[in-house]
Design a protein around this nucleic acid. Structure first.
Lengths: 329, 329
DNA sequence: TTCCTCAATCGAAGCGCTTCGACGAAGTTT
DNA sequence: AAACTTCGTCGAAGCGCTTCGATTGAGGAA
């Protein structure tokens, strides 16, 4: 069970099983047929000695490191719990494919990508939180390192991208409100700043929201309390029949609730609100709101799976949109 | 700048600089003296070709992978933002030492440790969120993989551990309250459940809190609203002069504030409260409270630095306690 | 029986790097 | 001037693995 001294090698396993080292290798990789008896003896020896192939040697000989890199925006930006869910999902899925995960921060930028690519320390890469004009994307294309991006850069040609389906998120919100019997509904969007660096994002939600029949308004909105208060008031004034609101603006959620209370609306009863954003935002208000959230784990699994396929030379769709989930609380 | 075809090797660099491959290696590692002229030519060639040593080859030849593993409790437990801060700090510090970081989940358990140790894929390991009776600790000892633990297991003999100095945290709270002029102070502790798996933890805070002279009470407390409400009432009734409270019970903070308001105490004016816990808990109440928080980044840096020293054969203290930080808002 | 095929296994040749021992060429001691 | 030291560099020997022929029997086809 335990390793005896230091480093059980394939030669040790071969000796104990009474075969050549190459045979052990073939048993382990399954790349050539080996008789069941021999395979059995080899596996027994592997177990007895607690053998694990030396990762460096394997990578050198096979030109496959068995490691993928994951570059996360570890400092800021994304919602932390979502990031963790993502990381966790990625590691778990990677292990399922017998791969390990190397963690990189976005700080390393293009130079970091060049380094890991050239040193062959990883076979591929998952790049999170890709922005519209991301210098790393250019580097990636130049390096030819197999990769999957989370998010869409301006020019996604030749790249594999995965992201949340924002159009579907907008649709889901409209559907939710309509199912609650809301006739007139509105989408309170984000401030411009939030979308500055992300393409399409807001528009896609908007599109989805409006795609469903029935009267619907879309209203961008800054996220300070005063603007939110005013915007909500104006929306209600302009649409006396308004009974449903989708909020795609994380910081504004609390203020929206206040504004609605001030206007005499009882949320959950004669008025319905749904949030597009992380769980916590929707849970922290009273009453808790239903929300459409990023299925981080699914995203991660999809990204890893796509990367594995690419590494195996199989093809994958250039662009994959993950269905959002609407959680009712 | 860009790699020409696939894989610039040390031989390419050597050829371009007009030296032997070994010379290039020595220039890069600095393990033998090389004339400045030769070194210059080599470095130039390295830059010209965009050479990065093949990680696998290097690890095979030098028996050093240049990678450390970090095993995080990626699923539950710890406060997520703190975890991220930790991960980010660790990666950054590791890169400073030219190391990469392999991310593992606690799910992999002892078997995962055995795997990474035997495959020599990493040189060392940082194990987060160690529990009193942690099966991984035993595995670690058996494997002899250089490591640093965050937290203290029951038997820490022969291991390197780093953790927050909880006694100091307790002291800091008492000091804070006394400085605000509070004569009589109390510590509202956690429910037993929270500490079940962590040794000393609560006691250490208690000790630190009581270490300062002056009247002080310590009161454990479950975290449901009713118990908190009752506990606070009782504390106030028993100590009419109580004007300062330290809360070492994350979920209870909000309830404590309500109870105090009900009792007519104006926090920040005639009554003072300090929290031991993550920022967010202290920020989410009104008024925002001062808090003692886990300096995750410092913890991570310390852990990585200690591990590096161990890998270099230098010695490090068995046990290191990190000073908590009291943030005033 | 002889020839061919195919499954099962072996041996050897690297993968790209580090490191050890050697070896000239200077520079120091005697 | 002979005998040592450095100093700077080179060549070769692996590190542990995968992979590519080559080899050996055994079973079928002819």
């Amino acid at each position: 069970m335990a390793a005896p001294g230091r480093g059980v090698t394939i030669a040790d396993v071969a000796a104990r099983a009474g075969v050549a080292a190459s045979t052990v290798s073939y048993v382990l990789s399954g790349k050539r047929s080996i008789s069941p008896e021999t395979a059995g003896r080899v596996m027994q020896a592997v177990a007895d000695l607690g053998y694990h192939p030396h990762a460096g040697a394997r990578s050198l000989a096979s030109r496959r490191a068995g490691v993928i890199a994951m570059m996360l925006p570890l400092r800021d930006g994304m919602h932390l719990p979502v990031l963790m869910q993502f990381a966790s999902g990625a590691v778990t899925e990677a292990r399922r494919h017998d791969q390990d995960v190397l963690l990189m921060t976005a700080d390393e930028g293009p130079a970091g990508l060049a380094r890991v690519a050239a040193s062959a320390i990883v076979d591929g890469l998952i790049l999170m939180d890709v922005e519209v004009r991301d210098p790393r994307v250019e580097a990636l294309r130049r390096l030819g390192l197999p990769s999957v991006l989370i998010g869409f850069p301006a020019d996604a040609a030749g790249l594999t991208c995965v992201d949340l389906d924002f159009t579907a998120a907008g649709r889901a919100c409209a559907d939710y409100l309509r199912e609650r019997g809301c006739g007139d509904i509105a989408l309170l969007g984000a401030s411009e700043a939030v979308y500055a660096r992300r393409t399409g994002f807001a528009e896609r939600v908007r599109e989805g929201f409006l795609a469903r029949s029935g009267p619907a308004t879309v209203q961008p909105c800054p996220d300070d309390p005063v603007s939110v208060q005013r915007t909500v008031k104006e929306l209600l004034a302009a649409n006396p029949d308004l009974t449903g609101l989708a909020v795609h603006n994380e910081p504004a959620v609390g203020h929206v609730m206040h504004a609605l209370a001030d206007a005499g609306k009882r949320v959950g009863e004669d008025f319905h609100v749904v949030v597009i954003g992380p769980d916590e935002v929707a849970e922290r208000v009273h009453p808790q709101l239903p929300s459409v959230l990023v299925p981080a784990e699914t995203l991660a699994e999809t990204a890893v799976r796509h990367l594995m396929r690419k590494l195996d030379g199989l093809d994958v769709p250039d662009s994959t949109l993950i269905e959002p989930q609407l959680t009712i609380r």
